[in-house]
Design a protein around this nucleic acid. Structure first.
Length: 729
DNA sequence: ATTAGGG
DNA sequence: CCCTAAT
């Protein structure tokens, strides 16, 4: 068996509940497909068709429903899957072939999606067997029914989902309270532009309901995975064990995952695809879009999203990519960012680093210092249920003693890919997963400590010295899991407040902090970045290590048992999760690309290029002066120029960051002034009345006169200065 | 894909 | 840096 996917689980235990998840890539990318937005429907359609089959099945054997359900499940599932793949041209709505590649795991992927939902709901049911959850239905259904469904099999799909909810028809609140996540995620989906289908699916729903009644939550859970694996070796993402006793936290994870997937799907398959282009590999832009969607949409929901959000976006992608050699590091980064962003939302859980490496929310409990209770996490979560909110309330209890307690709410473990034959037993699957996890752990990890986003590297400092105290802002404290390797090199990110290991590492490798070389490698360039986890800010540069093993985290357990002290029972009260709003924000920022201040040499190169090319040809500037600096996009250059111009105009005292030689700033102003005019001229207007610069021969001819340029520069500069001076005055 | 600008 | 809009 091969490890393929990353597994993530919460602290609560080793028994990581896993959820079958389809590789993102499968869902989203197709070889030929190019536009994400066009592919919205694919998944749904597929689901729909599958659902249709399912429905038929269930209806045909309506009587058998509950009783034989469990037993038949697998076969049932298989059928479904098969149908999905083979009967595209049939009844329900023909699924467009473009949506997935035959033989690929696409079908299963979709199934997974479905499964995820089902599972999620199952859990819910399990937890609240008696709850009146009709209300829940609303939310769920909304999600379930997307416009995509309209196209055909939608009904069926909804049916499936709904069925799970059948029991819960009326209490949205319950759901919300208990699993905020669920509601959230669904909402998110909706927000993402998916519209719910309002038409009645009731009939069908009923039909399915019988089949998948809440009565057998567990059954369902189990069975779905089976579906997943059905045709051929499907990559099972993880299979979650529906453990009866599982604590809440686990469930939440499940939910999370499920939700995540949904989101993903939506994102990836948002529009009816017309053709091959429908799905295209994510491009940076694409990612951005997605990210945007996620973020902006999520923001609204943000408050509710919490650490539940464990899932990663990139996992699937990776998957796909495996097939396609191309390395979309960049994409990856973006995706990671997405993850982070989402995670960040959680107030209590602070920073999640990608890869699932780090993350954690810290809570502080002033009480007895050393009590270390490792199992409490699960409990905590369970007890709290809603978690952060509860915990978050107080910060009280400050310290009577000088001990500072930390509780890491959860660490995320990177995804594990597990490829298991269909015929494999559940037991073997468990074993496999376990082995994978253990393997990961073998490597050992280091825990990094970040305060306010800044990594504290000095291990000898005391908490007090570092500002980590009960009274202090534990909220801004976060931990990261990092590979041993990485630990070594002290990162140097110049001035970067939030150094990211991965980036730093890269930097170290390629360039010296102080004087960046234009051609230096960037994180993106690195082959396999160290599986480092950064805390919030730097998500971007995370590269996912090729070997999942590497990046796998493992540490959860480690952390769990030791370093982080679980908070003792007393404490829900005692525990104060500090809602780190600031931090959250930071985290958000984290999502952004890592900040890479322009070095003087870069500025020089930029200035030079602009002098020659002007301010409207950033693409060319990029090519000419930053071709090898992948992290500098033409937009970056343009922005930098913008800031340079601004910087040049303000008082030196107001300038921040690495000082740019005045000489360069002068050139900036000169060039800026010149090109501004030049542009004006192009448009036919000569506004120069006062400026002689406009007539400067060298600039007059732009690029063609490169050589003379430098010679003239000095003059221009001085002139420009005057000009600028006038302007300002 | 680029550019231009606002945030 | 990010995001949008307009090319």
């Amino acid at each position: 068996m091969v490890l393929k996917k990353r597994l993530e689980y919460g602290f609560s235990g080793f028994q990581v509940p896993t959820i079958p998840r389809a590789p993102r890539s499968a869902r989203r990318r197709g070889p030929h497909k190019k536009k994400v937005e066009d592919s919205q429907i694919c998944a749904f359609e597929l689901l729909a068709s599958l659902a249709g089959k399912l429905l038929q099945e269930s209806e045909s054997s309506s009587a058998s429903s509950n009783a034989s359900e469990g037993n038949n499940q697998s076969s049932f599932d298989k059928k479904v899957v098969k149908h999905g793949r083979r009967d595209e041209d049939k009844p329900v709505k023909p699924v467009k072939e473009e949506c997935f590649e035959p033989g690929s795991s696409e079908g299963s992927a979709f199934v997974n999606e479905l499964t995820s939902k089902s599972i999620t709901q199952k859990f819910i049911l399990k937890e609240f067997p008696n709850a009146d959850s009709n209300a829940v239905l609303e939310r769920t259904s909304s999600i379930t029914k997307s416009d995509c469904l309209d196209k055909g099999g939608g009904d069926v799909k909804s049916v499936i989902c709904n069925s799970s909810n059948a029991a819960f028809q009326n209490n949205p609140n319950i759901l919300e309270g208990v699993f905020p996540l669920i509601g959230e995620s669904y909402h998110s989906n909706v927000d993402n532009g998916i519209e719910r289908e309002q038409e009645g699916d009731k009939l069908e729903t009923d039909g399915l309901a019988n089949t998948c009644s809440p009565k057998d939550p567990i059954e369902l859970c189990v069975k779905f995975p089976a579906m997943v694996s059905s045709d051929s070796n499907v990559e099972l993402s993880l299979i979650r064990e529906p453990v009866p006793n599982a604590s809440f936290s686990k469930h939440r994870n499940d939910i999370k995952l499920g939700s995540r997937d949904d989101d993903e799907n939506f994102l990836r398959c948002n529009k009816p695809s017309t053709k091959v282009k429908a799905v295209r590999p994510l491009t940076r832009i694409g990612d951005r879009r997605i990210r945007k969607l996620l973020t902006s949409k999520y923001w609204k929901v943000a408050p509710k999203l919490r650490d539940y959000e464990v899932s990663r976006n990139d996992g699937g992608t990776k998957h796909l990519h495996q097939k396609r050699k191309a390395c979309y590091n960049r994409d990856r980064c973006y995706r990671d960012n997405l993850h982070k962003r989402r995670k960040l939302f959680d107030q209590s859980s602070v920073v999640m680093s990608d890869g699932g490496f780090s993350s954690e929310s810290v809570s502080n409990s002033p009480e007895k210092g050393s009590g270390d209770k490792s199992g409490s996490f699960g409990i905590l979560h369970g007890a709290t249920g809603v978690s952060s909110s509860v915990l978050g309330r107080q910060t009280s209890f400050h310290s009577r003693d000088s001990n500072v307690k930390f509780s890491v709410k959860s660490f995320r473990v990177p995804e594990l890919y597990v490829d298991v034959p269909e015929a494999a037993t559940v037991g073997s699957l468990k074993k496999t997963v376990m082995e994978a996890v253990n393997a990961l752990l073998q490597g050992g990890l280091h825990v990094g400590v970040l305060l306010q986003g800044k990594k504290i590297r000095d291990d000898n400092r005391t908490l007090l010295q570092s500002g980590i105290s009960s009274k202090g802002n534990l909220g801004s404290l976060s931990f990261t899991l990092e590979p041993n390797i990485v630990e070594a090199p002290p990162s140097i990110s110049s001035g970067d407040p939030l150094p990211s290991l991965s980036c730093d590492t890269s930097e170290l490798l390629t360039r010296s902090p102080g004087t960046p070389v234009l051609g230096s490698l960037t994180c993106d360039d690195l082959p396999e970045p160290l599986p480092v986890i950064n805390s919030g800010t730097q998500a971007q540069s995370n590269h996912e290590p090729v070997s999942s093993h590497t990046d796998t985290l493992t540490d959860e357990m480690i952390l769990d048992s030791r370093a982080l002290v679980a908070v003792p029972a007393m404490s829900i009260e005692a525990l104060a999760v500090i809602p780190v709003n600031q931090k959250t924000k930071r985290s958000e920022l984290a999502q952004r690309r890592t900040r890479r201040p322009f070095s003087v040499s870069e500025v020089e190169a930029l200035v030079h290029a602009v002098e020659e090319l002007g301010t409207g040809r950033w693409r060319d500037v990029k090519l000419q002066a930053f071709e090898n600096a992948d992290h500098r996009t033409y937009v970056d250059l343009k922005d930098k120029w913008k800031t340079l111009v601004h910087t040049a105009k303000i008082n030196p005292q107001q300038r921040r960051g690495e000082p740019v030689p005045q000489e360069l700033l002068d050139r900036v102003l000169a060039a800026h002034a010149y090109w501004c005019q030049h542009q004006a001229k192009q448009h036919g207007k000569h506004q120069s009345g006062t400026l002689k610069i406009a007539d400067a021969p060298a600039y007059e001819h732009g690029v063609e006169v490169e050589f003379t340029l430098s010679a003239v520069e000095s003059n221009l500069n001085s002139q420009v200065k005057e000009v600028s001076g006038h302007r300002q005055l």
